[in-house]
Design a binder for these strands. Sequence first.
DNA 1: CTCCGCAGTTAATGAACGCTAACATCGGTG
DNA 2: CACCGATGTTAGCGTTCATTAACTGCGGAG
Lengths: 190, 190
Amino acid sequence: MAGRTAGARRAEILRAAADLFAARGFHGVSIDDLGKAVGTSGPALYRHFPGKDALLAAMLLEVSERLAADGRQRAEACGDPHRALDELLRGHIRFALTEPALITVHDRELGNVAEPHRRRIRRLQRGYVEQWVGVLARLRPEADPPTLRAAVHAAFGLLNSTPHSAQQMASEPMAELLLSMGRAALLAER
Amino acid sequence: MAGRTAGARRAEILRAAADLFAARGFHGVSIDDLGKAVGTSGPALYRHFPGKDALLAAMLLEVSERLAADGRQRAEACGDPHRALDELLRGHIRFALTEPALITVHDRELGNVAEPHRRRIRRLQRGYVEQWVGVLARLRPEADPPTLRAAVHAAFGLLNSTPHSAQQMASEPMAELLLSMGRAALLAER
DNA sequence: CTCCGCAGTTAATGAACGCTAACATCGGTG
DNA sequence: CACCGATGTTAGCGTTCATTAACTGCGGAG
């Protein structure tokens, strides 16, 4: 059998789909577009996914799991909340710079996945946010959870701005810029 | 004639369309959806706009003009760059909190408007960014323009996070939170 | 050698979409 | 009162879309 490389085509499709969905939106991309992007044409996709919706769901599930797992690992790796926050920032920045399309789709297209998977994705996203909130709560004991959650979402917006401006700067200084801005924003006095 | 209220229906359509486009994306909203949202049905829209694309173009043009004009006015109103930056921040925050749907569509759907209008919208958006860059350049003379532009885009991402988290907090403390985070991010040491 | 499952093809189907056409209503104007 | 422009309506046209059906080629297991 195809064995080791069984999921290769599937991963290739997901990657191409992420680029297209990020550029034109879920409904702006047709099955034929997706097929052409991976060298096959049209309905060949149904050998790998039961439908267009399922493809989006799989994509969001995968990226949410990666973010949540990475966040948990980084947040729990060290006791000092300052270091933990920096780890979370560096992890998210690496992700945003490495796969801007995935990041874009991740926070735009949840509304287009139906109820069975939607709940799971939401739960994973919420878990990721709570990792950040947990670290931040130790750094700002005076702030209440809703405010911290809003602050974390705002920081995500900042870090995820990569797709809009990544073309203008090299990846290394961009990462440093986002790190310092994110840290300053989250630790700002109010 | 309908005279004074001639543009009323048009404005109502644009407002409803902004909500729908923000929620489901341009291609995820049909003409019939737009009609139903304003109480008429379907093709009545063609009395007010030549087509769906033109509706989006008008919407983005309008919001870009508002942002650019507001930005110019606020940036030029005072000589102190610290005050000017605060003015820009407050203006953008007010906009983002007042019309989250417009802000969302504004930075997502440019790719769906065709070339005649696209250039004008781009020019307006770039002009708005340059207002911010101009103010910021006086506060951080050591930074080069590409870095400043990236920082401004990142700040926009932060401020525009409102749609993801506005439900959780009241408008007033949210505005204060965004102001302090945005200011801290833009003035962060590197 | 045979067989079978994987991955692809083209053709077809039913629904949805953007848009146009033809017709209706109605408030104000000459 | 007749007319007209503004603003609706419904029906229909052509296209595109997601999905299914039927068929093909192929690489490895028995």
